[in-house]
Amino acid sequence: MPVDSLERYSRQMRFPALGKAGQEALCKSTVAVCGCGALGTVLANHLARAGVGKLRIIDRDFIETHNLQRQILFDEDDVASNLPKAEAAARKLRAINSTITIEPVVTDIDHTNILALVSDADLILDGTDNFETRYLINDAAVKLGKPWIYGGVIGSEGQTMTILPGETPCLRCLIETAPPPGMTPTCETAGVLGPAVSVIASFEAIEAIKILSGARAALNPCLIMVDVWDWTFRQLKIANLLGKVDCPCCKGRKFEWLEGGQGSHTTTLCGRNAVQVAVRRDEPLDFPELASRLASFAEVRHNAFMLRFAAEGHEFTVFPDGRAIIKGTNDVTRARTLYSQFIGS
């Protein structure tokens, strides 16, 4: 990047702790943003504007009207265009900053692809909405020795912590196992406020900027907890957990999610009355062929990124990689049956 183009970052470069050297380091960085919903859009927005050289935006989902309340990169046109979140985000981010590289990836992050998705990244950011993916990120980050930043939000409260493998406690040091489905509320069941997400994602983003610009000494070593409704802000001391807790991941080097022993590829999307069915395909799905097969009994719409139809009271959204999100059921077996019935196996 020519020196002149740093002018767009002049206001943040004047911040002494960042400076020109910090900016140049940002411009040379690669970040994997895992999940591009509420947290992910705020994260990607901040980092694209701040000049992170390469952003890989990974998301499995499409945009719905009820996302617009908090997912700041999307608008009504994106909903109407049936765009996947990663693709719509990439278009907005390129309009915001054309001097950086944005790489959208429409996929479900799982144990088969995560290492390839994050191995060239300097930092991994958590923009997900579920613990299964977070533990997978944690496994990958610890295994590769890469920093990552956890964030979670529900209602008006959220938490975040920065994980430097080997130096600070990892997610499993803090929370040994994921809560079973139904034991914790989700944004769909308990609701979520846009500003609460922005606060947590902004904290993640500022810690990201510190890591990428070489200012690790300024990182917050605590588990941060914020409630924007009650105006509480707490910093819980967790540093001692690193030595004290017998962590299977960062101490035992046992990567249960990465090895595929935990988590499943076909999952209920909690609280959404929907199931994601994932069938691994070697070749991308042929949308025109599938559309003509379905045309006799369903109205089918498709673009390059997804195909949608309704049948038997369910709405099917199918992605080129073979994944489908089937709305109108929480029953995994039923969803698998519907999948083979309409899409094939």
């Binding site: 947290l39 909405d129 979670g152 529900i154 929370i175 909690c270």
Partner: peptide, 8 residues
């Protein structure tokens, strides 16, 4: 009591 926070 610090629960695990899932959403995002």
């Amino acid at each position: 009591i610090i629960p695990a926070v899932a959403g995002g």
